[in-house]
Design a protein around this nucleic acid. Structure first.
Lengths: 219, 219
DNA sequence: CCAAATCGTGCAGACACTCCAACTATAGAG
DNA sequence: CTCTATAGTTGGAGTGTCTGCACGATTTGG
């Protein structure tokens, strides 16, 4: 009566949902997101269009499916950090670990995935939404962990900065994957960029981009 | 034959465009973005639907019209900064100036404007896109001004951080406007938040959010 | 084995947006 | 001033996403 329905029906639902998502993703990658209609996905998955919109709120969700899991994982990383470790420190570790483990995987299997995103403004917009969700949850987590007063925007700013770094790294990795760069040097480059970002962040960026004293033919 | 068409026709175009945008914005604010169809805007502006989509690429552009100007202004601020002044410093000045001058204006005239955005996910998505554009241009500007090598992601990260601060401030101001807070205390609060953000940024945030050593019922 | 809740479906419809073939008003040439 | 090339405007038809609604099938609990 509450939430759990120990069902056999539930399995079919989950199964069906996954099947639809899989066939849709495959079609999108092969032919491009905008060039595949929901009706075609429905036909290929052997369900009706209405059923698809029953499982997924929008067409984009057929593609970005496991977004929620990724976002939730980050929260756990922070909550489970060692006593004495700072939030920035744990995220630096996480980002570096992701570069070592996750992103090469992304590059190996995901070049076509990324190309699909790049080819559709609808998917790019949806990706931005995902980052925004991640930022909101991160801000909440940071506010809890630092016991910040309700009106204080500091956690918001910190979260925005951290997600910005993450996003920049992901975009950089994506661009490398799209160019078909080799994995090893890309990993080195990303690690370096990540380190630089955190140095910038932790050490501060006072005086960054000081204007030179107009020497002759500037520009 | 090239680009400039010293027209009298051009005036009519600009005039027509502005007229359409004005009547559309008014309708959106009064009745909500999603509850006004493009056809209704066309009828009210006494043009055809096709004409509207000739002037504006999307329905959202009818609402966010002067987005480009705002973004371009920021670039000028940076390029015209005094010799010896850093980019972070000039943006801090600009943000504080915006709080003193621009945002109260926003709060006075714009509460309904903001409410309209808040009430439509399409408009919120479009707003995000605007921030992304701003970030891209800022990153480019920063890269030019610091003469950074092509592959170096530092300007990207710096731009992301600065836009993140800006966005947080704007969101905070928007929330205040929506709550109907008085202008003066809100300005004070925003100035404080802005200062804190830049202190965080310039001084660095090493050790932020250090985890306490698990004291009993830590919740 | 039956009743009831649930879920899939077909259908109709709203709406953003596009394409196309006319129509019209302007700009420049003679 | 007139004629013609050009470019903006228009209505209409069409595509595709997404939303209701009512009906039918299936699972669950008794």
């Amino acid at each position: 009566m509450t939430t759990e329905k120990s069902g056999l029906r539930e399995r079919k639902k989950a199964q069906s949902r996954l099947a639809i998502s899989n066939v849709a993703t495959k079609m999108f990658i092969e032919r491009g997101f905008d060039d595949v209609t929901v009706a075609e996905v429905a036909a290929a998955a052997d369900v009706s269009v209405a059923t698809i919109f029953n499982y997924f709120e929008t067409k984009e969700e057929l593609f970005f499916d496991r977004e929620g899991e990724v976002i939730a994982a980050q929260r756990r990383f922070i909550l489970e950090r060692k006593p004495g470790e700072s939030i920035t420190s744990v995220l630096r570790r996480e980002f570096l670990a992701a570069i070592d483990a996750g992103l090469p995987q992304l590059m190996a299997h995901g070049a076509s995935f990324l190309r699909t995103i790049e080819g559709s403004s609808a998917l790019r917009a949806r990706l931005r939404l995902g980052f925004e969700k991640a930022e909101a949850l991160l801000a909440e987590t940071v506010a809890e962990e630092t016991e910040t007063a309700a009106g204080d925007p500091t956690p918001q700013i910190v979260a925005a900065i951290l997600v910005a770094i993450q996003r920049t790294l992901i975009e950089s990795a994506g661009a490398a994957a799209l160019r078909g760069d080799a994995v090893a040097p890309t990993k080195r480059r990303l690690r370096k960029a990540c380190e630089r970002a955190f140095v910038l962040l932790e050490g501060g960026m006072r005086g960054y981009g000081k204007k030179k004293a107009a020497a002759g033919a500037g520009r």
